[in-house]
Nucleic acid binder design. Structure first.
Lengths: 113, 113
DNA sequence: TGGCGTTATATTCCGAAAAATATTACGGTA
DNA sequence: TACCGTAATATTTTTCGGAATATAACGCCA
């Protein structure tokens, strides 16, 4: 048996200012849903709060409506939660992502180098 | 009319040590064919010779056979030319690349965010 | 034998991106 | 009013990949 090559790749959804949704961004959204705050979500995936905040900000600015609703102060210091748009965005990306993975799988077969 | 999102992405062919063929690498191969040397190819695409040399080395090591044949010294200082494997590798990548572009195009349509 | 332009390789330098750090604002609660 | 943990934002520090620089080896030719 000889070495097998395979097709690799990445996909993302592009918005007005570049990347809108990608693997990392959507994973972050899911963590926010799970943990209820940007900071807890960031911690849970070894991401700095600053980076997470910027990603959320970028997504909120590019979405037709905000994907994440944030509140500051109050009991627990505040938090963040997904909007309906946020939920739909997650689905939107994973759907395209799944199709892409299938494409990669199928297209890896005919790679006779 | 609302803002249109579209699907973006990249593909590459993976070999034993990671990326084997990608857009930049294959473009480099074509430039080597065109110019007859690694250094001239690199210059023609604003790439440093060092970087170009490393890419060629990586491809040669990962291919079943070398993609680029190099000679040192002599009239003109030496040079480089594509092997038959190199030619076939270019085709191999562009073929997958074209299919991927088509996938992106088609899959961008159903992006109703 | 010296010159040329290439391949080959080591080493230093640099800038941009990421990480780390610091500070302020916020608004419930005790 | 003091405290807490968060959001929000500015600033400094670190890291790391690429660029730049330097040098040797090679082999033909004048």
């Amino acid at each position: 048996m000889t070495t097998a090559y395979k097709l690799g790749g990445r996909v993302w959804i592009e918005g007005p200012e570049g990347t809108f949704l990608g693997y990392g961004r959507v994973t972050l959204l899911e963590r926010i849903r799970q943990h209820g705050s940007i900071s807890a979500a960031a911690r849970s995936m070894q991401m700095s709060y600053l980076r997470a905040w910027k990603l959320v900000d970028s997504m909120n600015r590019q979405g037709r409506q905000p994907l994440v609703e944030k509140s500051t102060g109050g009991r627990g210091g505040g938090g963040a939660r997904l909007t309906e748009t946020g939920e739909r965005s997650i689905e939107l990306f994973w759907s395209a992502y799944r199709d892409f993975q299938q494409f990669l799988q199928q297209r890896s077969g005919p790679l006779q180098g």
